[in-house]
Each structure stands twice: as structure tokens, then as C-alpha cells.
Nucleic acid binder design. Structure first.
Lengths: 251, 251
DNA sequence: CGTAGTGTTGAGATCGATCAAGCGCTGTGG
DNA sequence: CCACAGCGCTTGATCGATCTCAACACTACG
């Protein structure tokens, strides 16, 4: 258990990138982030089929949701960053539909699933935003799925890098084209339906063709605009249409 | 424009499979289904990047959401059945993120995106259920994505058939193991990341191995329980945990 | 100094894509 | 009634991208 009061809430930055929040909404969000739990690198946060009592706000660190088959294969469904809420799309199910693991040292804020119902009841506008962000993440997952069936290995890897960079920029607007990548090549492979071997070769090819520059676990993207066009990349993170949201409640 | 007042609403059957609805909630739903529009077989309902003003309730017929790349490839994201609401996961975006096309003669009920906000405001419990159903469909999409990267062609096709059968049973509880399949082999391929040729061979292999029986566009599944285990199929349609939903509003 | 985790490289095997030809059915027009 | 075109489906041959298997390099760490 660690207290990090000096951190500005990443969740608030994430949400305020799309909509400015009222004091009441901020107060409700603060409740979600009341408890903090620290997790080690490469640790396990949630096990599939266990009782999914909690959702999590990511305060620090990267995580991923995955499913492991009985023959040992792992499929990574989604990658989570600071400012994300994990578990909204699992809300329909009592038991966790996937494993959740850390890629980093992480600080998470667990909160009860009931809180989601309370938000929808008391501050429906905030509820709509959380739902919309979760829906946006699903669209991103669709984009990656399409790449998985349509592009070769280097194309898939490059698209994933583009997606990650644009996601990070939402909560770090000052970022340039360089990012730290805590995923190893097995992780990337399990996200894109490739093996670590193919990922290694794809990264090498991307570097040789001048799409990326690598240095340890840091990656710089080059020729981003060209890459976006080639891969038909759409930045799903740019904006969220809030025009249909219910009105903010005074209290 | 066609009136079909004698139809029991499939949307209501779909929702009541998971939660019984109050008169107020039913009244709000009825408003969504006020307008009816008929579409021809293999027609276009929505074009990507057009103004996504409407969501749709499916009253009759099958549809699919897809994305077409500029090189002509089509990727099918989701298949829609009577009783579905199309467009909830696109709500965050002003412009449609995908095309929507019919597979059948369809009857749809278009409604304004604002209505979703109103439901979340006035009947948050009903809003939560609609969101939960949309989230469930995303989990199903994840299952199919996993199959796409992990299983060979016959495995993918068989999993898709299992998914479709279980979805149809939600709104037709009396169904047996036979269903009409308005998808052609190109459609199946575009859903699973295969070509029509591979789908043809996969269906043939499945029939030879006794997993399915075919007759025109009708398919009967055999040895369903064994297939479920082999493919680690989970029936996401069985139940939705409503325990966290906000309370029903008296008015 | 040994071990575990990660990344690299190469050789052979495999599954699905591609290409191509042909079949059966349906609707249309002569 | 027949000829024809279009569509969906089938089947076979060849090709290529990725997987599998295996060996090895590098680093961190005890």
C-alpha cells in the first residue's frame, strides 16, 4: 500500500481530454481512486474465472488483459495504460473473462462494480463518458484485429506502435515520437497473433526500412504520416463526441 | 415503410432474457421502435465516415458491420440479429466507423443518438443493460479474434457457427441445433480472416468429420458438447450479471 | 560462474493465399 | 424453350508467409 498524493490523477487527465468535469463529477471520481494498491512487475492482478468483484483505475504502469488456453497459448486482448479504467467491458459477467497482469510496477485503485452503477445513476454524463471511452478502446481493438487478418508481420507491428503512441499522447500531450515499450517480443506476438521469432524479424525489417529506431526498450517512430496512410491508421483517441451525453447533474 | 404491429418486439425478448423490465422501461423502449424502415437484401444501411446520426434496433433480418480497405478487402466486424441494437459502440464518434449492410430483407428502427443519453438519464438501469449487452458482444468479438489467431480454418468456422447458434437461441429459446445461415462463404471468410476458398474447404472438412450437416443454406451442428470443449467455447449469451445495475426508477 | 530472461538467426515444414478451371443454379432475354 | 450471364461454390496446383525447432548471443543477477 503506497500513498502518492502528489500525483495528478491520470484518470482525470484522460477524461478531461474529452470533456471538462464538474466538481460533483470530480468528487465521484476521487472516490474511485481512494484505495491504492501496488503490484510488482510481471505480476498477476486478476485470474480468469475468479470472482470479478473489482474494477481498477490504473494510476501508474502498464498492464494487459489476456486469455490463456489449456495448451499454454496466451492471447493478449488489450493493453492498459495510466488513466484507463480496467473492467468496464467485463461488467456483464460475474466471473472475470480474462487474466490481468502487470508489465511494470503498477499502482492500481480497485473499486467495486457497484460504483459503476452508482455513477450511471448519480452522474449519468460521467457514466456516458466512461462507457464511451471503453467503446473507443473496443474500436481500437477492432482496428488491430483487422490488421491481424490483413497485414503482414511488419505492418501489424507498426500499426500497434502507432496505436500505443497515440494512446500515450492523450495523457502526455507533450510526448514526441519516442516511447518506452515495456512489452517484450512474446507480448507483442501474443497481441498480434505472431510468434516472438516473427516479431523479432519484423522489428528488424522495420528498422532497416527506416520506419522505427530502436534503443533497448525505447522505440522512436519515423515517417509517421506515411505509415499512417499506408496502414489506414485512424486516430481513435483524437476526440469523443459528447453531444449526445445526458446533461451534467447539479448534484 | 412497413408496419408490422403483430410482431412481438425482438428487442424486448432479447432484454427480458436477462432482466424483467418495468412498464416505464418498456415505454421508453417502445419509443426507440416507433419508426420502421425496410431494407432490401444485400443493401447498404450506413456508409463509413458518413454522419452517424442514428442507431438502429433490428426488428427482422441479419446484418453486418464491416470496413472496406482501399485495396478492396472487406473485414466484417460483427454480425447483427433481430433484437440487437446497432451502433452503441460507435456512439463515441460523430462519423460512422464502419459500413452497415443487410444480409436479408431487414426491418430496422432508426433512432437518434440522443435517445441513448436520455435512457441513461431517465432509466439508468435500462441504460446499464443496453451497455452490458454491447459489452457482451465485444467479448464475443474477442473470442472470435482469439480463434482467428489460434485456430486453423475448420476450427474458426466451427466456433463462428457455435457463436451464431447460441446468439439465436437467446431470442428463439425453442431452437434446436439447426439454423438458416444467410452468410455466403465470402462473408464467413471476411469475418474470420479467410478466403472463400478456404472456407469452402473448411466446411467440407467439418462435414466429413461429422461436426456439421449442410443442406442449402441451412446448417445443423453435431456433437456440440465435444466441439465446445475442443474450442474452449464459452457461452457469453447465457447470463448477464445485473447485480451492479442502478435501481429501477419509479418514473 | 551458472541461470533465467530476452533477443537473434537459420533451416525445414505447414497452412492458407492465389490462381485457374469448372459445376450447378437462377434469372433474363431472344 | 433455349442460350447466356452472373453468382456462389468446389476442386486442384503452386507459392509464400509464418510457424516450429534449434542453436546461440547478451544481460542481469545471485
Amino acid at each position: 500500500m503506497v500513498k502518492l498524493d502528489d500525483y495528478q490523477s491520470c484518470l482525470v487527465s484522460h477524461l478531461e481530454a474529452y470533456m471538462s468535469l464538474s466538481p460533483n463529477e470530480l468528487a465521484l471520481l476521487a472516490e474511485l481512486e481512494r484505495d491504492e494498491v501496488e503490484f510488482d512487475t510481471r505480476g498477476c492482478v486478476q485470474v480468469r474465472n475468479s470472482d470479478a468483484k473489482h474494477l481498477f483505475v490504473v494510476k501508474r504502469g502498464w498492464l494487459f488483459s489476456s486469455i490463456e488456453s489449456f495448451d499454454g497459448y496466451r492471447h493478449i486482448l488489450q493493453i492498459h495504460h495510466p488513466g484507463d479504467v480496467i473492467g468496464i467491458q467485463n461488467a456483464p459477467f460475474e466471473e472475470a473473462t480474462c487474466d490481468i497482469s502487470t508489465l511494470d510496477e503498477c499502482v492500481l485503485c480497485p473499486f467495486e462494480r457497484q460504483a459503476l452503477g452508482r455513477i450511471m445513476n448519480e452522474q449519468p454524463r460521467l457514466g456516458a463518458l466512461l462507457i464511451a471511452i471503453s467503446a473507443r478502446d473496443q474500436i481500437v481493438a477492432h482496428d488491430l484485429k483487422r490488421a491481424t487478418t490483413r497485414y503482414d508481420a511488419p505492418g501489424r507491428v507498426l500499426l500497434l506502435l502507432l496505436v500505443l503512441l497515440h494512446r500515450l499522447r492523450v495523457t502526455n500531450p507533450s510526448m514526441d515520437d519516442t516511447m518506452r515499450l515495456p512489452l517484450n517480443q512474446y507480448d507483442i506476438g501474443d497481441t498480434l497473433g505472431l510468434t516472438n521469432v516473427t516479431v523479432s524479424k519484423a522489428l528488424r525489417a522495420l528498422a532497416e526500412d527506416g520506419w522505427i529506431a530502436r534503443e533497448a526498450s525505447t522505440i522512436t517512430l519515423r515517417r509517421i504520416e506515411v505509415a499512417k496512410k499506408r496502414l489506414e491508421f485512424e486516430n481513435r483517441y483524437a476526440e469523443i463526441d459528447t453531444s449526445w451525453f445526458p446533461e451534467s447533474r447539479g448534484r
